[in-house]
Design a binder for these strands. Structure first.
Length: 363
DNA sequence: AATTCGTGGAT
DNA sequence: TATCCAAGAAT
């Protein structure tokens, strides 16, 4: 029996809605499957949750399939080469996730005998697992009564209780509401139901309130303005940074690449030689900053928007007869670029200089 | 507590 | 076109 108060709506209508309208996702054990005895795989749940951090379901699906095909068990991922994991993650963004994913797999393999901890606290201590992911894995994979709160849940709760306090200040209060609502029975389904509701009904724009299992309890709907919630703090404007990137290709089709430092922006990923990315446009975006002397030709500009700044990258190209000695890079056959840990901005830069470098150019 | 960290689809 | 923002974590 779930304890409810005057201000705590029952989870039952939501769970009933979930039984009928849940999304079918590759990593998910649906209520129907669970009824036939299928258990969620903690490795699958963990992998999907890390990939889904600030990332859409659509973007995650092909990556999730490739990771599982290549590394079927967490011990396989633990034994993988770092470069292989980074290359497999390339394009998904937030690359610290991939670095921590590998560390977490190694910790599970070496310190936990290949078995994921089954408590929120145990999970929370692993690399790349924060408050949300620890609660999500505990609830979904281990049926723990953990309070799961992501961006979807924040939106649902903010509307359900008409919370006018701006995010992120309102998070602690909102998490208390989630904890009070989370049932002892089916806590994992409750968490997934809240997220499905936020993704399909209680959407940021034009929520489908008439279809919502909380329509009778929702305070924002009673106020006739659900879209007003959640209130968010104003965000800063994005500065513009400038730089140059240099694509050198030999006559036998090899391109000069190098590896970025292990931490920070695009940490540990592969890049073509570039200048520093700064707020100034003079000097640093010219061929004078090239890694070596050659007949560098300007061939365009790549504009790429990161989370907190916009990058305008001048692209320079040089066709050279033979490899030039390099301290910190290597020459890679252009035909092998697909296997490299190249972030999207670097693929755009290369595609600008070598239009046929990739099968699917997103530049 | 405020910043830093990618990318692409939807509106 | 510009803005939002998507199953957040680390520092």
């Amino acid at each position: 029996m779930t304890i409810t108060t005057l201000d705590t709506p029952s989870a039952t209508p939501l769970l009933d809605w979930y039984d009928r309208h849940h999304r079918d996702l590759p990593w998910r054990v649906t209520p129907g499957m669970a009824a036939r005895g299928v258990k969620a795989d903690p490795y699958h749940i963990w992998l999907s949750e890390v990939m889904l951090q600030q990332t859409t379901v659509q973007a995650v699906k092909p990556y999730f399939a490739r990771f599982l095909e290549r590394w079927p068990e967490v011990t396989d991922l633990a034994a993988a080469e770092n470069d292989a994991v980074m290359a497999a993650w390339a394009g998904l963004g937030y690359y610290a996730r991939a670095r921590n994913l590998k560390k977490c797999a190694e910790a599970v393999a070496k310190e936990h005998g290949g078995i994921f901890p089954d408590t929120e606290e145990g999970l929370r201590s692993l690399p790349g697992i924060g408050d949300y992911t620890a609660a999500a894995v505990a609830a979904i994979a281990f049926n723990r009564q953990a309070a799961v709160m992501d961006g979807n849940v924040e939106r649902v709760i903010s509307r359900l209780y008409a919370i006018a306090t701006p995010l992120p200040a309102a998070k602690p209060m909102m998490k208390e509401k989630v904890a009070l609502m989370t049932p002892a029975a089916r806590p994992g389904d409750f968490a997934q139901a809240m997220m499905d509701l936020g993704a399909t009904i209680c959407t940021p724009k034009r929520p489908a309130c008439s279809l919502c299992p909380f329509r009778d309890a929702c305070k924002a709907l009673k106020l006739s303005d659900p879209e007003f919630f959640p209130v968010k703090a104003a965000k800063k404007e994005k500065p513009v940074r400038y730089g140059a990137a240099f694509i050198a290709v030999t006559d036998d089709g090899e391109i000069l690449l190098r590896q970025r430092v292990a931490s920070g922006l695009l940490g540990g990923m592969t890049e073509v030689p570039t200048t520093a990315w700064t707020a100034r446009t003079d000097g640093e975006t010219s061929a004078e900053a090239a890694p070596f002397d050659a007949a560098w030709q300007a061939c365009g500009t790549v504009i790429h928007v990161f989370t907190h700044f916009e990058l305008r990258l001048s692209i320079w190209r040089a066709a050279i007869a033979a490899k030039v000695g390099t301290n910190d890079g290597w020459w890679e056959p252009v035909t092998n670029l697909e296997a490299q840990a190249l972030p999207t901005v670097m693929k755009k830069a290369i595609a600008t200089a070598i239009p046929l470098a990739f099968k699917t150019s997103k530049g």
